[in-house]
Amino acid sequence: MLAEALRSGDRTKLPGRRHEGWRWTDLFGALTTVPPLNPERQALGSWSVPIALDGVVVRRFAAPIQGGVEHVTLEVPAGDHRVVLDLIEAGQGRYVRDLAFDFTLGVGASLERLVMIADDADAVSVATTHVQMQARCDFAQTVLASGARRQRVETHVDHPGGAGRVRLDGAYLLAGARHADQTTVVRHLGRDGESRQLVRGVVAGAARGVFQGRIEVLQGADGTDARLAHNGLILSDRAEIDSKPELEIYADDVACAHGNTIGALDEDALFYAMSRGLPEAEARRLLITAFVGEVAERIRHPGLRDQALIFLAAQAEAFDGEGR
């Protein structure tokens, strides 16, 4: 919807409050004008990636100068295994970007993907991924977000069932007035599919985290085993987390569950760590890093996992002094 608005320049095409899926991420309200499309890009450089990240395809996406629309496709041939690191890099200023990814996985293909998205605090940024899977595919994704004026990473996976597996994880660490939205839709189309999701977020300052996760199990998709968990920590009274984990079930032989918790940092754990000698700030950082770190720990590729942990540790560091 954002791409359409950017292409046409028509502000009324921006998604906003009146769209159920965008009630908490109001782009219409955030943008008084739609910036013109401009193919120019800002310089890369917000991340330094190890030159030899073994066996990983690293793709870097530079921020536009004004409005930017990009469409990227990836095909993993039958039986192949790919590891992808998508770095959606920050630029400066009030740019507006729409990135669309289309992934197609052949029979028995597998893809592990890490998305790290950084944006300027004034930017509006949306990245949407659609994944088509065949039988016996394995798709695993981890999205790490740090927010923007409005930032949304949306992922749709059509799961054919069979022996296929899907993991859709995410983490967000937000400070200042940043806003990050992680939205997922997993559609179980066939029998015996499995999906797992773990999304964890921490908000400080006046930041706002949004999580929407829908599991759909269509008629005939019996034997589906789908689980989703979202856990949020709010470190400040001006911060906010909005979440909607949804189950939409049209088959009866299923085991679906979601859990959603939102709360403050566990005071007991904080005291425990402090009683062992960790100063408060360090104890907080340790607990926050551990909390979101569990998302990174689920990444199979060791190189990707390290990148994720580094990213999260750096984010947790930025929280110091802003917690309360």
Binding site: D268, Y272, A273, L287, T289, A290, E294, E297
Partner: peptide, 8 residues
């Protein structure tokens, strides 16, 4: 009652 700290 020692605390559990997952992830650490």
């Amino acid at each position: 009652y020692p605390l559990e700290i997952p992830g650490v």
